[in-house]
């Protein structure tokens, strides 16, 4: 019995030490990880609405968004949209102007299949931005639909549809809420 106790104690000691080490690592890396996430979001915001000079974070009914201002004048909204893709979530930031026209879509995180769904983010050689996301620009959020006004990626209809549907649904919902 005392042997069992000894084994248990050794295991416990090792687990405790491991937890301690991890807690320290976590505390050290946490601010850095959060900073990275913020920077990514900021970069996305600036690509979508480069003319705006300030972004203020707000939320309405559980939807997080940024208000983009230029010299105090409202330029548009940047809404955090999450779509359900092939292998998990697709996190995006979608820019939309007060009239409901899409200003731009940036994908922050996705786990789609490399070579297929992951091509939502693919930039063709010699071009500056992903061709799939570029299609959204200048279109009315409520009308977005794959095969109607958005071309799907070959072999990745589900990922294409996941992005398109999430943008349409969330943005229409958001516009209805924010105007109220």
């Amino acid at each position: 019995m005392s042997q069992l106790l000894k084994f248990g104690l050794i295991l416990c000691a090792i687990c405790l030490a491991a937890t301690l080490v991890l807690a320290v690592t976590y505390q050290v890396t946490k601010p850095k990880i959060e900073e990275q996430l913020r920077r990514e979001e900021r970069e996305a915001l600036e690509t979508i609405l480069p003319e705006a000079d300030s972004f203020t974070e707000k939320s309405v009914d559980g939807l997080d968004y940024y208000e983009a201002l230029k010299g105090g004048e409202l330029k548009g909204y940047c809404v955090k949209v999450t779509g359900s893709g092939y292998n998990g979530f697709i996190r995006m930031i979608v820019g939309v102007n007060p009239a409901g026209v899409i200003e731009g879509v940036e994908v922050l995180e996705q786990q789609e299949t490399p070579g297929l769904g992951a091509d939502i983010n693919k930039i063709k050689p010699g071009e500056k931005d992903p061709w799939f996301l570029r299609q959204f620009k200048g279109k009315d959020a409520a009308t977005l639909e794959v095969k109607k006004n958005i071309d799907a990626i070959t072999g990745a209809t589900i990922s294409s549809r996941a992005v398109t549907d999430a943008v349409r649904k969330t943005i229409t919902e958001f516009l209805a809420k924010v105007k109220r």
């Binding site: 295991l11 090792i14 687990c15 491991a18 991890l22 690592t25 976590y26 890396t29 990275q36």
Partner: peptide, 21 residues
Amino acid sequence: PCFIVIIATFVTIVELMMKAY
């Protein structure tokens, strides 16, 4: 079990470091 705990600790360190840097 001891090996697994030690390995898991290092894996988590890599995971956190990678997320940060």
